[in-house]
Amino acid sequence: MKALLALPALIAAAPLPAQDQGIEATAVAEAAAPLTDAQMEAAGAVDAFMAAIGSDDKTLLARHMDPRGTIFIHNRMDAANPRVDVVPVAQHLERWAARTGDYEEVMEYDVVRVEGDMAQVWGPYSFRYNGGLTHCGINSISLVRGADGWKVANTSFSMVPPAQCAEVGADWEAAR
């Protein structure tokens, strides 16, 4: 799974040129140091979340999400009509349980941050339905740790057409 392979790449990332600032610079600074146990736990929760997306058990996803959360979809599939859709996690889980077909989401973790019982995992992803690439984007996954471990609380993600996968960092799709 790409998500699992992303952790060694995160640790071994090369520095960016001086003109590159912002999130990329933060990711490189974080990548210079080995991930802490807490970061590994948070990344492991996202690994489980990604595996649930690809699982034949459509109820599995609910075990990895907090139903009180919110999903923000920054949809740029039609460049002339970008929009932001907001979906409560509880509603998404109901829809997800009724879905058919095969799903695969692959994500690389550029940033894994943990502060107490909250964590943030950020990075590019690609999404396939029944084997066909439907879109790519950037995932921003917020986690919360409770008595039963880490769960995805809120997520924001962008969606761009397959032709723009490399532009958002999902460059592995060009090799598929």
Rank of each mutant, 00 (worst) to 15 (best):
S158W: 00
D102S: 13
A153I: 05
R99W: 09
A31N: 02
E108M: 04
L35N: 12
R145D: 10
Y129C: 10
T100I: 09
P161W: 14
W172C: 10
V152T: 03
Q39V: 13
W122Q: 13
D57M: 03
G132H: 14
V160H: 15
A98F: 04
C165P: 08
L60I: 02
S55M: 05
D78A: 07
R145H: 09
M40W: 11
H64L: 04
M40D: 07
G137H: 02
P88N: 09
A12V: 05
A38C: 06
I138D: 03
R63E: 15
A27C: 02
G101H: 12
T59V: 00
A18Y: 02
A13M: 12
H92A: 08
I11S: 15
I71C: 02
D85V: 05
W122H: 09
S126C: 09
A147E: 13
E41F: 05
M1Q: 09
D117A: 10
E167S: 12
A166R: 14
W96L: 00
M40Y: 09
M1D: 10
P162H: 15
V87F: 04
T134R: 15
M118N: 11
A48I: 04
A97P: 01
A175D: 13
Y129I: 12
P82R: 05
R128F: 15
E104A: 11
P161S: 12
M118Q: 14
G146M: 07
G116I: 07
A175Q: 15
Y129T: 14
P17V: 01
D148E: 14
Q164M: 09
P17K: 04
R99G: 08
G69Q: 05
G69W: 01
M159I: 11
V168W: 10
V46H: 03
L61Q: 00
Q120L: 15
D56G: 10
D148H: 05
A97N: 07
N154C: 06
H135D: 05
Y129L: 15
N75K: 06
P124N: 00
G132V: 15
R68S: 15
D117N: 08
A98W: 01
H64Q: 04
G123C: 00
M159R: 15
Y109K: 02
D148N: 14
E24G: 12
A147K: 10
I71N: 07
L61S: 00
V106K: 11
I73F: 08
E104W: 11
E173A: 05
L93V: 01
I138Y: 00
E108G: 06
D47M: 12
A45V: 09
G131E: 10
A25H: 07
V168S: 08
A27F: 00
L10K: 11
W96I: 03
A98L: 08
S156E: 12
P162L: 11
L7V: 14
E41C: 12
V112N: 02
V121S: 01
H92I: 00
F127N: 02
